[in-house]
Structure formats: C-alpha cells, structure tokens
Nucleic acid binder design. Structure first.
Length: 1029
RNA sequence: GGGCAGCUAGCUCAGUUGGUUAGAGCGCCACGUUCACACCGUGGAGGUCACAGGUUCGAAUCCUGUGCUGCCCA
C-alpha cells in the first residue's frame, strides 16, 4: 500500500482526475447505433454562459447542480448527455467590446465599420470562450466536450435562419412601428429587460399652451406639466379627461374605502387628499368640463415655441385629480403618450436622430443634444413668458443597463413575432404539467407572463448577432419575384404595404442581387440574442437536420436555471421548441437560487462583489466549492455569501465591504502587506500579489474532503498486506450489531440520497451525505472497527465492511465532489481492485473510474429500524459517559471505572458492545445490568434508560458538581411542572390523539425518574462534601 | 401599483402533513497533539423562531394584518 500524505492535495488530484476522464472520454455520449435500443436517456443542455466575461459564482452554482444530476444519472446507467456551449449575448458583448474600443483606442464602431467591429468581437469571443470552458473544466463539469456549441456558430445559425423563415412563411413575423428604449450611446434599441431605473433629481416644468381663438367663457390657455420640456417639440395634442366629474367621483370613492380600512395614523393623510379632491371639484371641475366639451368640438391649442396648432383631445390618460388635469401628448417619445396617440389617431412626430440629437422636426433646435435642447427650450419658454412654475422633483429615469446612459423612448420600425398563436401551447404545457417547474411556485410567473401574449420585438440595431434574413426590394411586381425565386422553397416574401416587398430566405444569402433590375437590400438589423437561445435545446442537437442526436436526446430531460430568466429564456424555448419540432424542449425545470453578497445585493463584476470560482478552486479545491454551492441550493430564493479577501502574504481574511470592494489594492491590516484585487490596472498595483476573494463557507467542503481522505488512509492501513476482498458476509445472523447498523444506514442513506436527486433537493443531498460520512461512518463505525481489526477472528469481516461503507459513500458523494471521490477510488482500486459491491457486475472487472461505477442500490430489506434504535442506545451511553468526563475535566487518556445500571434487555444488547464502550468512552466497565453498582461516590448521569455511574474518585470537583446538579435538577423540575400542567388540562387529554398523550405521560415518568436520580446524586455529593469538612 | 419570496443562534442556513426540551456548519469557550485526520477529537455556551392579532388541547409551522429586505412584472 502506498503511503498517503496526511493532507489531501486537491490540486494534484484535480489534474490527475481530469486527465483520466479526458483520456477515457467518459463524459461523451453517443446516440445508439442503428438497431440498438437507446435504453434510459438523460439529457441536459447547459444554459450557455455569455461570452461577455468570465464565469462567476452564480455560474458555478448553476453548473455544479447540472453536473450533480448528470453524474448521478450516468452512474445510474442512463445514456447521459450534457451539451455544453456559450452564448454570443448580442448587445452585452458588443457593448463591452465597444466600450473597450472607446477607452483604449478612442474609436467608435462607426470608425471601424461593421466587418471590422464584428471581427474584434469574434476575437473577444475566442478569448472568453476559452476562459469559460476552462473554468467549467476546472469546476469538474462532465459536459460532452466533443460537442461544444456556440449560439452564433454555423450549426446554430442554420437553425436560426430556418426557424425564422418558417415563422415568416406562416405570417407570424410582422413589421411595425414601436416605441423602443433607445440607447443613444450604443445607438440601438434595448429591450425592457435591459433597462434599469434610477431616481435622479429633476424638475417639473409647468408650461402654458394658449387656446386658439377662445370663445366667450372658455379658458384662454391650458397648463401642462412635464419633466421633459424639450419633448414638447414632438407634441401632437393636449389631452383632458373625457368625463372629469366621473373620474373624480371614482377617485373619491376609492379614497373613502381606503379611509374606512385605514388606521388612525393614516387617516389624516387621506382626509387631506379628500379635502384636496373637494377643492378640485369646486375650483377646477367646471373648467375641465369646458375643456372636455372643447375637445369634443375639435378645438385646438397652439404649441409654444413652434407655433404649431395641435388638437385638444379627450382621453382617459389625463388625470383630473392631478396637476392641472391636462397633459401634453408626445406619442413618439413616451410610452403612455404612444398609447394615447394610437387611440386618438394622432400623428407621431419623431424629433430624434439615432445619436440623440434633434432632427429637422426640432425647428430652431435641430442638431442640439437633448440636454442642450432642454436648456434652450426652458430659456425660450421663460423669455416667452409661457413658463408658469418650476418644481423640484425626483424623477424615475430609465437607463440602459449596457451603456449606463439615459434611455430615450424612440419610435422605430422593428420586426415582431406574433405571440397570439405561439404562446398558447407553451401555456398549456406548464398548465397541464407536461412541463414541471420545481419549485412549483415559479410556474405562476411563467404563466402570467405568457398569458399577456405580447408580440416579441426581435430586431436589434446591432452588428453582433444573427443578421435578420430579410431583404427589401421596391418597384417590382409579385410576378417579378415569382420569376426570380418561384422555384425555391427556401424563399418567401410579403408585401411591405408601400409597394415594395420583404423577401425572406432560410439560406445564408439570396441567389441574386437584383430582381427585375431593382436592388435587394438586406435588413441591417440582427435578431434579439434570445432568439438563438430559444432554439438552444434543438439547434445544438442538429435541428433542422434529422440527426441521430436529435432523435435520441431531444426532448431533453431537465433544464437547470436561475429564476430570473424564466420568461426571457425558458418560456421562449418552450415556444420555439414546440413550433420547430412539435415537442417540448424539456420535461422538468429545476430553478435554483441566486447568490448574493453580505448586503443582500446580487453579485456582479461591475459592482466588484463577485468571486471568481477559480480563486476558490485553486485555494480550497473544486470539491470544496461544489460542496458549499450544493449545500446552499435550497428552495429559498436568495443565499447570502459574505466574501473576504485573502491576504496572499499572511492568509488573513479582510472583509469585503462596499467601501473596499472596488479598490485596486488593499493593505492587509494584519501583516501590512499590500495586495491587488480584480480592479488593479496600474503597473504598480499589478506587480502586487493577488488577494483572491474567498468565503469561509467553502472551508467546510475542504475539511470534508480531507476527512474522507483520512478515513481512506485509515481503511487502507487496515487492509493489511495481502488484501483479497470478497463481498462481506451480509447474513443478518452472522453480523455484529455495528455491521447490521452500518448496512441499515447505508441502505437508508442511499435511498434518501437518490430521492433528493430525483427531486432536485441538492442541499439536502449534501447534508445527508456529510452527516452520514462524518458523524456515522467516521466517528462511530470507524472508531468501533479499531478493536475488531486487532482481533484476527473478526478482522476479515471488519475490513470488508469498512470497504463496503467507504466505497458506497464515495459513489453517493461523487456527483457533488467528483475529484476527491475519484482520487480516493483510484487508490482503493489499486489496493483492493478485486472487491465488488453488491450492485456491481460480479463477473466484470471493477470500472476504470468511479464516474461510471454503478450507483449504490442497497435493497430495502437492509433497513432495520430496530438495529438503528439499538445502536442509538449504545451511542447515547458513550456520549453520556464522555459528558461526565468532559464536565469534570478528566484527562482524555485516563481510564476510569464505570458501571451501567440498566434493564436486563438493554444489558444483553450492550453486552457485545462492552469493548466498544470501554474504548470509545475510555472506561473500565465494572458492571452492566440491573444490579450493577458503581463506586459509593460515583458521578452519575442517565442516558437512553441507563444509569451511568462513573467513579471519578478524587478527580471530581464536588462543589462544581453540586452546583451543576442543582441547576440541572431545577431545569428538570421546570419541565415536569410544564408537563403536569399540560396533562392536567382536560382539553388536551380529551382532544389530542391518544399516542401524543401517552407520549407525554411517558416523558413525565422519565423526567420524574431523572429528577429523583438527580436528587439522590445531589444528596450523595452533599454528604460527601460534609464529610470532607 | 400588482405578484412571488424571505425574516429562526454572532454569521450563513435547515426545520417534512401543527405534537417531546427548535437543529447544522462556521465562529465562540474549555480540555486534548492519541496511533486516519489539529483541515482533528470530546464537551459546552448561545434562540421571546421580525411584530401584532386569530384558529387550535397544542403554532417556528395554519389564517389575517403590520414592518423590513430581495426579486419579478407594470
């Protein structure tokens, strides 16, 4: 047997295990050969990480959980595929590269041009894809590395074109105006999901619009208020409520209802609001009603500064309970106004250029930026005396998540996918549970979102992505198109409703550049990045080709993802999977929590609170990381992870806080040495050693690895020189109590672990195995085996049982901690390669890797509750004696006399464990049974129905023991009192189930016995104290 | 504004259909380098289960409300 070092070397093991797995390609999956049955199939597609940057802890969690499922199923004999890959992440990646381009070379994308920029992004992609895949391998992810895909690779691109073409052909793609969130920095529309809101200090300007030719009794002007005065240049109406009296009444009723339910503290505020409402009814309502009538009569007001006449309209968007009751309408630059514009058939005047400056509609302000235009407009309004009031106000301003600049709502032509028809089947699939979302509660969000059936805007004004396969041609007839493309099934077209045509093709390019002499112009936009993601489960398997992979592994089994992309990604995969293949993309969705920092904020690189998983992998091992992450994957939403910087000089941990987390260098408060962080950019800082961001949470996993390693050292040392290991005898009659117990526990634990995996209870899986391996196998069984190993008659069985236990633990733990379990398994294989587990193929050699070793499947018959109970008694006795010793500070190695007084049945049970008790509790048993008597001054305790009498002689501190017993007795007396009161309650005895009442009675008896013994012991000690004086 | 969660030991979290004296890891205290492991062992201290009501013989658990935190959607 080789000498194993005392500490597990995770780095060496990781290198060795990866080499083994890679050389055997154990992670590779093939569809069955023709005629071969597929057997049980398990497949997962990775949620492809964005090539924007390196992986963080959230990815580590996501992929650890997938790997747990994949490794377990593989061991269980499933044909198991885990499809790896990365996502091009459209806007996110382009934004990162553009920002660097600007920072480092002071160039914009327009300086570079489309082709050159895309080439730059490809270079970025290559770099980060390598980094990401390397991180996944470091993590131990057993993806099929022969099948790595990328959402923008040729196979995925073909799928994207085909899917889009089919949608187009079926009339599900439409062109339309849409108010988009315009990022003036990136000059693209961004989706709602890529927008964040931030409150900024701003103003509320009240502007007077004059009524054109007011008649007698009519107001001469209306006042509207806005936070964005420059948008008035695009105003096309002023709105008043169609029925202001009714609207006010509705608001009032609402307030009265609120007041009735309000607390006394809240009522004054509501009363004030009611007073205000009454004042409005009195002072403002007549004027509003006049305005409503004027609106109905088609009257107009004059737009300040530009002098344009715009209509008064009656629309419910105007709120009579707020401000002047009138509101300006800018349909092309405000989402609410856009809706009003559609309802009222108003012109929509776009005043913006894509770069955020004003276009020709801005009149004298043309060419100014929005910011400058605002200053100028305000100054001019003031000069024209049309500004009535300026209020300070906090404004909720939308910002682009990518460029961090304010968003301008902007009207633009976009491509949409109609959801009315597509959404329903995806709703049904979850509603009738053909797709199961775990935990279930997340299904609601999915269903609510889909049920809105909002059309999906899929075009993005970007250069990085799948270019929309649509060309435009004008000035030709349909007959010309038929002549040009009529015989091609891969080309379809539709009218642009302005005399031209949109031509869509599933081929990469059209066969011709012109139709009837007219040029075909390709749409410059690319598709929303989620479009290719939506195809991921089937595109990666080769769709639209009918590949063997698609036939075997699609639909996939499970999708593992975090909750925030349930709609953006999961729902769309269901939609497109069904549309393209007619089948669901997966059966179950396992949703896991997000990892937050110590303040409860989500981790992100930009905040600086992230952790690079590789830091943890290098410092403590991939298994430590995986164990901790699995342990955190409970059903709760958030997991907080306080992070520390580890000083590379002295190892001291420096708390990561909001104040230091973005610093490029930190001075260690302990050793004074400076170290760098991920933010270091200056040469001086980069020269410093790196202080990795870690968390103590990972140490438990590292310690656990080491525990397993050392348990293995013990087992290997115990095997002796010439190991030959048949299966241990498992005949119940031939087994000692400890063996029956181990076998029973192995069976229980294997079943619990399997169930936890089936139900995606990752944290429970980790906890079960940790507790069993550490507290039961190592602390109890392994300790017990020590005396047996010294006994030639019992040695062989003990060795075999130790191996059975260790091998089973390793296999159950392998999905969570693949490296340490493999490393150990290889050592065991070398030392005891002839062994077989009951669930192994008895005729074949032991598998080459634990990765493909059969999953433990102990029969239910092994579970023996009686034995487990008996064993618990034994452990309780040992614990009780240890407690006495510890309390009295008995030197750990000093053997003391002890007796156990207990009923005969317990005694006969404990008798075979006599030696074990003596060694584990370091005592010499002087008596065991109903009449066992301890020394006169023995220190006592009770445990599991046994009186433990430990003779500590002079070792005992009488005064301290008296004090402790008094406290203990008082506590017991308190419990007794509470129990008696409970049992005296007739309602309890009458209504509670009989077994509960009986249980309470039994406990009362036990407590009373304990108190009697405690008092007896106290009396003995007191007389001893008296004697001593 | 609507929806979904969370609030349990100093920290991070478990706690199954309501039922003994509410658990784990880390941290803390005491003792111990012993022969698998000090990345260890043995023992201990530490909780009004956010708050207020309610249902019940009995509530961390079920119901209602409040507060704070997070996320999603408008």
């Amino acid at each position: 047997m080789p000498d194993l070092p005392k500490h597990y070397d995770h780095q060496a093991a990781q290198t060795r295990c990866r080499g083994l797995w890679d050389s055997l390609r154990l992670w590779h999956a093939e569809p069955p050969a023709a005629g071969e049955p597929p057997g049980r199939v398990f497949s997962i597609v990775i949620p492809p990480p964005n090539v924007t940057g390196a992986l963080h802890l959230g990815h580590a969690l996501n992929n650890t959980l997938q790997d747990i499922l994949v490794r377990a199923r593989r061991m269980q004999g499933f044909r198991t595929l885990w499809m790896p890959g990365t996502d091009h992440a459209g806007i996110a990646t382009q934004a990162v590269v553009e920002r660097r381009l600007l920072e480092e070379e002071k160039l914009s994308r327009h300086d570079l041009g489309r082709e050159a920029l895309v080439a730059r992004i490809w270079a970025w992609k290559e770099q980060y894809e390598q980094r990401i895949l390397g991180q996944l391998r470091d993590l131990g992810a057993s993806c099929d590395w022969d099948r790595v895909r990328f959402t923008l690779d040729e196979q995925c691109a073909a799928a994207v074109r085909e899917a889009f073409f089919r949608l187009f052909q079926q009339g599900l793609v439409r062109r339309g105006k849409r108010l988009v969130n315009w990022d003036t920095f990136l000059q693209t529309a961004v989706s709602d999901d890529e927008v964040f809101h931030e409150e900024v200090k701003g103003h509320f300007w009240h502007i007077r619009y004059d009524v054109i030719d007011p008649e007698a009794g009519e107001p001469e002007s209306v006042t509207v208020a806005t936070t964005r005065p420059e948008t008035l240049l695009g105003d096309t109406a002023v709105a008043v409520h169609p029925d202001p009296a009714a609207a006010l009444a509705a608001v009032e009723q609402d307030l009265r209802q609120k007041r009735a339910a309000a607390t006394a503290k809240e009522q004054p505020a509501i009363d004030a609001a009611l007073d205000d409402l009454a004042a409005r009814r009195r002072d403002l309502l007549p004027r509003l009603e006049t305005l409503t009538a004027m609106a109905r009569a088609g009257r107009q007001v004059r737009l300040p500064l530009l002098g344009r006449a715009i209509p008064l309209v009656a629309d419910e968007w105007a709120k009579p309970e707020m401000g002047s009751g009138c509101v300006k309408i800018t349909p092309a630059h405000d989402p609410n106004d856009y809706d009003v514009g559609r309802r009222q058939n108003l012109p929509m005047v776009n005043i913006l250029n894509p770069d955020g400056t004003l276009n020709a509609e801005g009149g004298p302000y043309t060419g100014l930026t929005m910011k400058k235009a605002r200053q100028q407009v305000v100054a001019d309004l003031e000069a024209a005396e049309q500004l009535e009031q300026i209020e300070d106000r906090l404004i909720d301003l939308a910002h682009s998540d990518r460029s961090k600049t304010p968003i301008e709502p902007y009207l633009a032509d976009q491509w949409f996918i109609r959801m009315a028809e597509l959404a329903q089947p995806a709703i049904d699939a979850v509603a009738d549970e053909r797709i199961r979302i775990v935990p279930e509660r997340y299904a609601k969000g999915y269903l609510d979102w889909l049920s809105e059936k909002r059309d999906w805007p899929v075009s993005r004004q970007l250069w990085w992505g799948h270019r929309i396969p649509i060309w435009h041609v004008a000035g030709v007839s349909e007959a010309d198109l038929v002549a040009a493309f009529g015989d091609r099934e891969t080309i379809a077209w539709t009218s642009d409703e302005a005399g031209g045509w949109f031509v869509c093709s599933s081929d990469e390019s059209l066969p011709v550049d012109t139709v009837a002499g007219q040029p075909l112009e390709r749409d410059p936009d690319v598709l929303d990045t989620w479009f290719s993601s939506a195809l991921w489960p089937h595109s990666t398997l080769g769709w639209p080709a009918a590949t063997p992979e698609l036939a075997c592994f699609y639909p996939t089994t499970t999708l593992v993802t975090s909750r925030d992309i349930l709609t953006l990604w999961v729902a769309r995969m269901v939609i497109m999977g069904l549309f393209d293949t007619g089948e669901l993309p997966f059966r179950e969705v396992s949703i896991h929590p997000k990892i937050l920092d110590r303040y409860g904020e989500t981790m992100s690189k930009s905040k600086g609170n992230g952790v690079d998983p590789v830091d943890v992998i290098e410092a403590l091992g991939a298994d430590a990381l995986r164990f901790a992450l699995a342990g955190m994957a409970t059903e709760t939403q958030d997991v907080r992870m306080p992070v520390d910087f580890q000083c590379p000089g002295c190892g001291h941990l420096v708390e990561q806080t909001t104040s230091n987390r973005t610093k490029p260098r930190i001075d260690c408060p302990k050793c004074g040495q400076a170290f760098r962080t991920q933010w270091a950019t200056s040469e001086a800082d980069l020269a410093l050693p790196r202080g990795p961001a870690v968390s103590e949470k990972f140490e438990a996993g590292r310690n656990f690895s080491n525990k397993l390693w050392n348990a293995t050292r013990f087992v290997l040392m115990s095997l002796g020189e010439k190991p030959a290991f048949p299966l241990p005898s498992l005949e119940p009659d031939s087994l000692e109590l400890a063996d029956r117990w181990l076998v029973s526990r192995l069976a229980s634990v294997a079943r619990e672990a399997s169930a936890a995996i089936d139900e995606y209870r990752y944290a429970e899986l980790a906890r079960i195995l940790y507790g069993f391996a550490w507290d039961e196998y190592c602390s109890a069984y392994l300790e017990l085996s020590k005396s047996r190993l010294a006994d030639p008659a019992r040695q062989a069985q003990a060795r075999a049982m130790l191996l059975l236990g260790l091998d089973t633990i390793l296999r159950l733990l392998h999905p969570i901690m693949p490296f340490v379990t493999e490393e150990i398994w290889q050592h065991l294989r070398e030392a005891a390669g002839t062994r077989r587990m009951p669930w192994d193929d008895q005729t074949a050699p032991l598998p080459e890797s634990i990765m493909v070793a059969p999953w433990p499947a102990p029969p239910a018959a092994w579970i023996d509750e009686q034995t487990e109970k008996q064993f618990a008694t034994f452990l309780a006795v040992v614990g009780g004696i240890r407690e006495i010793r510890a309390r009295q500070n008995v030197p750990p190695r000093q053997r003391v006399p002890a007796a156990i007084r207990c009923p005969a049945e317990l005694a006969s049970l404990l008798e075979p464990m006599r030696g074990a008790i003596e060694s584990m509790a370091v005592v010499e048993l002087t008596g065991l049974g109903p009449t066992a008597a301890g020394a006169a001054d023995a220190t006592t305790a009770t445990a599991a129905g046994c009186d433990l009498l430990v003779d500590l002689a002079d070792l005992v501190d009488v005064d301290a023991e008296i004090a402790r017993l008094e406290k203990d007795n008082a506590k017991t007396a308190g419990f007794i009192k509470a129990k008696q009161a409970k049992l005296a309650n007739e309602k309890f005895t009458a209504r509670a189930p009989a077994e509960i009442v009986a249980g309470e009675r039994a406990q009362l008896v036990e407590l009373e016995e304990r108190l009697a013994k405690g008092r007896e012991a106290l009396a003995a000690l007191q007389s001893r104290q008296a004697r001593a004086r």
